[in-house]
Design a binder for these strands. Structure first.
Lengths: 101, 101
DNA sequence: TAGTCATTTAGCGAATAAGCTAAATAGGGC
DNA sequence: GCCCTATTTAGCTTATTCGCTAAATGACTA
């Protein structure tokens, strides 16, 4: 929930990629796990870390667990830090657009 | 240098705060170290990690080492990730401004 | 109730991280 | 050349991380 736990969660490439996958919408633990070359228990540990950082939410549906992205936590932590680093709105906009182009 | 090493470097609160201190300009290793409750060798390890991620540069001056921020590496990695997360320019701008307000 | 599928928990091992103290290195000043 | 200051390297300890397999849990189905 704090900035520390968010940046800690973001430090692993699998966890960042999970967030990217969830950008398009909710996915079950199993669907997510299919995208990575590690075991399901290992993925479960990654989900737990993302969840305790407040970056994803899990809801129980018919025996499956659907994970969804919690974008506001991500934005508050990351953009909050960038703001303290003196990144102006214009800087952020051009950096984001540069990447999109 | 890669996004992995950057996010790894950002995962420790001391290292993030070092970057914030360097926002205002170059500082020596000793000056930086004064701001944290850990030993100088420990700080040296943090500097090494920031440096190998390309987030700071160290230059030798008169027996001191002056560290300076490498903002472009930070922006490229962090805003690049946020861009892939679908954060639009407008989103980024409002998040940054919200923090500044 | 038994069976099955999805997910997590438990327990383990290897690797990495983060802290410390003590010692080594590099420059500048006397 | 020798000392002093600044910084890093070496070596150690403890804690955490990340992966695994095997077992436990939870929920639906027949």
């Amino acid at each position: 929930m704090t900035m520390n736990t968010v940046f800690d969660a973001l430090s692993h490439p699998i966890r960042r990629e999970v967030l990217e996958l969830l950008k398009r919408g909710g996915m079950t633990a199993g669907e997510l796990a299919e995208n990575f070359p590690v075991s399901k228990p290992t993925m479960s540990g990654h989900f737990a870390k993302l969840k305790s950082a407040g970056l994803i939410r899990g809801e129980n549906r018919a025996g499956h667990i659907v994970y969804t992205l919690n974008m506001s936590t991500l934005e508050e932590a990351v953009m909050g830090f960038m703001g303290r680093m003196g990144v102006t709105a214009a800087d952020a906009a051009s950096a984001v657009e540069g990447e999109a182009a």
